[in-house]
Nucleic acid binder design. Structure first.
Lengths: 237, 237
DNA sequence: TGCACAAAAATCGTATGCAATCTTTTTTGC
DNA sequence: GCAAAAAAGATTGCATACGATTTTTGTGCA
């Protein structure tokens, strides 16, 4: 487990909680699949890696458990979540409800500076798509998620923004698990289209594009159950 | 602070976490306004009241902090949330996005047993509306929230259900803070209408009724800022 | 060899202790 | 008498300790 690559990257803003820093690092590692689903995250190990006591490590794991990225079992420990196809469908059903509305709200509040940020984000995405290999693919998933988070922040609703943070993180897990490598590039062009709609303040178009975009992402998944649940459980542990 | 009235009401299912039990009790107390916004919830006090160590009390407070019912300040402690009008608007904006979709989903999955449960819930609401006094009003707010939670559970999406739990809890806080006592009774008839739409599986109607219902709840609030922010802050502490 | 059972190790749940930080009260200087 | 500084008190942040539970290892017996 090589999580703590740059443990102190965010430690300059050390005024904040250490547990939160650890949570962020672990979340990145999970979303990037440096930590595979089902991996055990023992409190002691996490604490040692980040050089904190179990108390702090436990708090970080509790946070991740709330976000659905980690599943905790009493007296057994915490494990990286292993979302079922049903869970995956629920994640995308939730996004279908929320994100078109976020797109509409963003249309009403987007500034020129935001557009610049969106363009930079799109460039970043394009860079990773050009590359090949598993590392680039992970970065691509992450960048794609960041686009949606940027949109949520522009929409200006802190509650929805937090919901989206959770949904995007879980989506990344789902995509990494069930994604067919194929059509992820088409997501980039769809993002570009959404930014265009934002720029022209066309909320109806932005909403429609977003809905289609989510449909496309989900359509790219292979959510058929691969084996009987019992076997599945057995293989995952 | 007389929270721990029936601490051991849920202790029979003691297989579960104690922190979770405490969280539930505190949440009920906050939603019922037995704990007023701004009230300090010190770890030591909570621990003493529920007869657990600060460790457990702290975990419960952390959970409530995630749900937005409690605000924690570093090195200062936890306080019952005091949502601003802006926060209140965001809560209802979020509900407007999510709940019509939940109503539609519920239409596709509602069973006869569910309808029976809804009827029982409506009866319960009616009972509190008939009564008067502050206690009945709190119970009324709670029962009204329970209706929405029941709907969310019928919709069958665990993620949205959790989001709704948070939104309903925060709504109860907001209503208690900014509600004009007037039109809460009309909510009951709207609930009845929604159940009717569910029964006839009319998802379009259910969705529309829900949207109007949320609009009505928010319209019943007085979200004008009462004083300058500085003074407001000063008064709240 | 394979299985059942017991001992050992690992891990979690929780309580408690200490240092750091914040708040309040007291003291001191003007 | 009042403002500012200093001390006392309270509360949080974090680490550590210990009992409880789970998992693993080891051993005897069929």
């Amino acid at each position: 487990m090589n999580i703590a690559d740059q443990v102190y990257s965010a430690a300059d803003s050390a005024t904040q909680d250490r547990a939160q820093t650890i949570r962020d690092q672990l979340r990145d590692a999970i979303v990037d699949r440096r930590l595979a689903p089902g991996t055990k995250l023992s409190e002691g190990e996490v604490g040692t890696l980040f050089d904190v006591s179990r108390t702090v490590a436990r708090a970080a794991l509790q946070m991740l458990s709330f976000e659905g990225l980690v599943r905790t079992e009493r007296n057994r420990g915490a494990f990286v979540a292993n979302p079922s196809p049903e869970e995956a469908r629920q994640v995308f059903a939730s996004r279908r409800l929320i994100e078109p509305g976020i797109a509409i709200a963003a249309c009403g509040r987007v500034t020129a500076a935001d557009i610049v940020a969106f363009r930079a984000q799109l460039d970043e995405e394009g860079r990773f798509i050009a590359e090949r290999g598993p590392h680039a693919r992970r970065s691509e998933i992450k960048a794609s998620g960041d686009f949606h988070l940027l949109l949520a922040s522009v929409a200006g609703n802190a509650i929805l923004q937090r919901f989206m943070e959770e949904l995007v993180a879980r989506s990344s897990l789902v995509i990494a698990l069930y994604g067919r490598s194929g059509a992820s590039a088409c997501g980039h062009s769809e993002h570009t289209g959404i930014v265009g709609a934002l720029e022209s303040r066309d909320s109806g178009l932005a909403s429609r594009l977003m809905l289609h975009h989510i449909d496309h992402i989900e359509a790219d998944l292979d959510l058929r159950v691969r084996a009987g649940p019992a076997l599945r459980e057995a293989l995952n542990f």
